[in-house]
Amino acid sequence: MTPLLAQAGLTQGVTVALVLSAALFTIGLIGFLVRRNMILMFLCTELMLQAASIAFIAFGRMREDTGGQTFVIFILTVAAAEAALALGLVVLLYRRRETLSAEAWQELHE
């Protein structure tokens, strides 16, 4: 029986890249949940963006399509924009409460 992934044209390298992507995404998610430091939470979202980028590249490679790479460029753009804004906000928040803990802003939930 032909392995399932092989049927779809997934070679070993691509498969490893996808597994890496999944693992990174999961770790990023876990990091976002367990971290309390706002900056590191953002860092974890960057980790998830990384995972997405890897998946894009891998699938692009699999399909021999450069569209995946093009998309990663957009991801980079978004990541950069996000970093600029988010860090600005974090600094602002840090100045208000003198802490980076996300829990300091818990009362905003109303």
Partner: peptide, 11 residues
């Protein structure tokens, strides 16, 4: 889950 902690929402 919605006590204002960001992680709650994310979770």
């Amino acid at each position: 889950l919605y006590n204002g902690a960001l992680q709650g929402y994310a979770g």
